[in-house]
Nucleic acid binder design. Structure first.
Lengths: 222, 222
DNA sequence: ATAATAGTGTCTCTGAGACATTATGAC
DNA sequence: GTCATAATGTCTCAGAGACACTATTAT
């Protein structure tokens, strides 16, 4: 039995909707690391046994300290990537997470960058981060096709038209308004905010928010 | 940043169909471990950086060395469990896997035991193995409801009636023969074995096998 | 009034389930 | 022939999508 330990990290694929397109976050690696210093990569870091209560906690801490995210985000285990070659420092394990943030909740800094997912394949990312990103996109699309996951792209309230648009951006296809609303109604995840409307130069739209006490629902991966 | 390392293990929930019921494997822990010696638990072990090419490889090695499984099994990442309290030895991470084996492929030994999943909650397992087992059962049921995953409970060939019975055992409900066959046909995962039949004292049934080159299909978790 | 978007109603068609019917072997 | 199970066909009903229609605001 070997007593050599693998490198143990957590990497996060953080999604947002920006300019009507799905984007994911890259962060600039520090210049004092042995592995790919100063390169753009998925945000990640080591597990800190003395601070973290579990790996989700690790992910949350990394988002707080490296990306300066204070709020509680939707965060879900994606998959574990492992092997001797994925990290130049040696045999490594990375627990990948999917996360979602409303665009307005994260302010721009020189250390972070949003990349349109359509362009992600043209960026050669370090480690196996291209693979991790691809898996995360697949998962996001898959879950969006049968759940209300995309509501996490909104901060608080939203109209059904806005929500439908986000679904269409993620799934890369037009959806029928009528069926979309019927399905959402069946899922029973939204409550309308009484007397609250959002209008431009047309008929104002009813605002909705996530029904409280129904947030745990998603967590299962199945 | 802490340089203390977590304990790193892989645990496997291995399923089979035995006596027309879904069972999972427990193995007896060795008496020289600090954690729960001689108790029955999910088979598991440490990651060996010098031997294993990745965590699936770790799982395969554990199945070979501890359970004496030589064949290639269906094996899929389930979820990662982590925290300071789940293992008495300290902060630990366990990558859990789901696996499936045809009952005939594993011979009984005093070190292993098949437990009916219906009785699993009455067994108090060490670590968080009750939770891991519960998640694995959920996942198996979920995937069985929309995929051909249950074909892995068979060794080579099987009839559609046999396969339907396994689905019914896993999903805990009767299925309609006609719809079941229509769906299987749509999935296009089986080929009939020409001229091969299996009969009792009734009309013999056509034997089928998994279509070659369509095995990678399942691996995605989504 | 018109423009523009919100929101609902109607129709059709597909697919799943319930059930009936036919097929094929052993005896 | 009967019995038992395999295999297929028919019917109905519910849900999804296509599309049309109505509603409500600003101008």
């Amino acid at each position: 039995m070997s007593h050599t330990y693998p490198i143990l990290t957590v990497d996060i694929v953080l999604f947002t909707i920006k300019d009507d397109a799905l984007h994911l976050l890259l962060s600039k690696r520090t210049n004092d690391t042995e592995a790919f210093p100063n390169q753009w990569a998925l945000p990640g870091g080591y597990v800190h046994v003395n601070e973290d209560l579990n790996l989700i906690d690790t992910a949350t801490r990394i988002l707080q300290h490296k990306i300066n995210i204070r709020k509680h985000l939707y965060l879900e285990q994606l998959e574990t990537f492992s092997g001797p070659d994925r990290d130049p420092r040696g045999w490594s394990i990375s627990q990948a997470f999917c996360a979602i943030i409303p665009f307005e909740d994260l302010q721009a800094t020189p250390e972070i960058q949003w990349i349109n997912v359509k362009e992600i394949q043209t960026h050669k990312l370090p480690f196996d981060h291209n693979l991790i990103a691809a898996r995360a996109i697949e998962r996001l699309q898959s879950k969006s096709s049968y759940s209300t996951l995309p509501i996490h792209f909104f901060k608080g309230q939203f109209t059904l038209s806005e929500l439908q648009k986000v679904y269409e951006i993620i799934l890369q296809q037009k959806l029928d308004k009528s069926s979309f609303r019927k399905r959402l109604d069946d899922m029973n995840m939204l409550t309308l905010i009484k007397g609250s409307f959002k209008g431009g130069a047309q008929r104002p739209a009813q605002l909705y928010k996530i029904k409280t006490d129904t947030t745990s629902w998603f967590k299962s991966t199945l």
